[in-house]
Simulated scan of single mutants.
Amino acid sequence: MPRSAAVHGVERRGSLCADTIAFRDDLRTHPHAADRCADVEREAAAQAPGLLAYSALKARTVARIMSAAREGGRPQRRPFGGATPPDPGKDTGARA
């Protein structure tokens, strides 16, 4: 049976989490980029025999969007409600 979804886990407040939120926010605030990303994902899903091939086929588009989101090439909201996320390397004493 083909997959209908993939679930990814990331460290809360880590750099990958912040990147994922920035990517999401960029797509939310830039409909043209969101449409292009959706088109590329549909094309990749139709062509790819598996998840790794699917990821490879959409990698260039994802990289462009992520670059714009990281570099502030587009206006975006800050993750974590605008607060600066804590340094993942610093022990705050809090336990999950």
Rank of each mutant, 00 (worst) to 15 (best):
M1Q: 12
P2A: 14
P2F: 13
R3A: 02
S4D: 03
A5I: 00
A6L: 04
A6R: 03
V7N: 12
H8E: 02
H8P: 00
V10K: 09
V10H: 04
V10W: 01
E11G: 13
R12P: 05
R12K: 10
R13Y: 03
G14A: 09
L16V: 03
L16A: 13
A18V: 01
A18Q: 11
D19T: 04
T20K: 08
T20G: 10
T20Q: 04
I21F: 06
A22I: 00
F23E: 09
F23A: 10
F23D: 03
R24W: 02
R24T: 10
R24F: 02
D25K: 12
D25E: 06
D26K: 14
D26S: 13
D26E: 06
R28Y: 02
H30W: 00
P31E: 05
P31A: 14
P31S: 11
H32R: 14
A33R: 11
A33H: 10
D35I: 08
R36W: 01
R36K: 12
C37M: 09
C37F: 12
V40M: 04
V40C: 12
R42L: 08
E43M: 08
E43T: 15
E43P: 01
E43R: 15
A45W: 11
A46Y: 10
A46C: 03
Q47F: 05
Q47P: 02
A48H: 04
P49C: 07
P49H: 12
G50K: 09
G50A: 11
L51T: 10
A53H: 15
A56L: 14
A56M: 13
L57C: 11
L57I: 12
K58M: 07
K58Q: 12
A59Q: 11
R60P: 10
T61S: 10
V62E: 12
A63R: 15
A63D: 12
A63G: 14
A63V: 05
I65P: 00
M66W: 07
S67R: 14
S67W: 09
S67Q: 10
A68R: 13
E71Q: 15
E71I: 06
G72T: 15
G73R: 13
G73Q: 06
R74Q: 09
R74E: 02
P75E: 10
Q76M: 06
Q76W: 06
R78W: 06
R78G: 08
P79F: 01
G81V: 14
G82S: 07
G82D: 02
A83S: 13
A83E: 09
P85Y: 08
P86W: 03
D87M: 07
P88I: 07
G89I: 01
G89P: 00
G89K: 14
K90P: 00
D91V: 12
T92V: 08
T92D: 04
T92S: 12
G93Y: 07
G93W: 04
G93K: 11
A94V: 13
A96M: 04
